[in-house]
Amino acid sequence: MSLTARIVSALLAAFVVAIILKLQRRGGLVSKYGLLWMATSAVMLVMAAAPDVVDTVGGWLGVEYTPSLVFMAALGFVLVVLVQYSWELSRSEQRIQILMEEVALLRRELDAQRKDAEPEG
């Protein structure tokens, strides 16, 4: 890999780390996601700083064209994360619905009690 390419990819990885850190500090990320993306950006940083690592790992696995290994791993990772998000979103929707039902029923209860408490006429 050329020196320019290394510098650009290292800068990109550093940028991602910076964004994640900032989000985490401002409370914009729940810590489990913070940890997930910190780990991801750390891997990116390692790959940018020492691209030979990819070739070595590729060699162990018997992959001839090692860059395809990076793409495959990245794609697989993104897929798993997205499926997990869909699952979590579905669960959140369910919970919100139950919460709304609860709110509506309580509001009705409250209205009924207020009406009862009002003096006649």
Partner: peptide, 20 residues
């Protein structure tokens, strides 16, 4: 009257009615 604070869709409205 049961009021849902946001629009949740037909099925959700039904389910609330059934819960009541």
């Amino acid at each position: 009257v049961l009021r849902l604070p946001v629009n949740l869709g037909y099925g959700a409205a039904l389910r609330l009615g059934f819960r009541y």
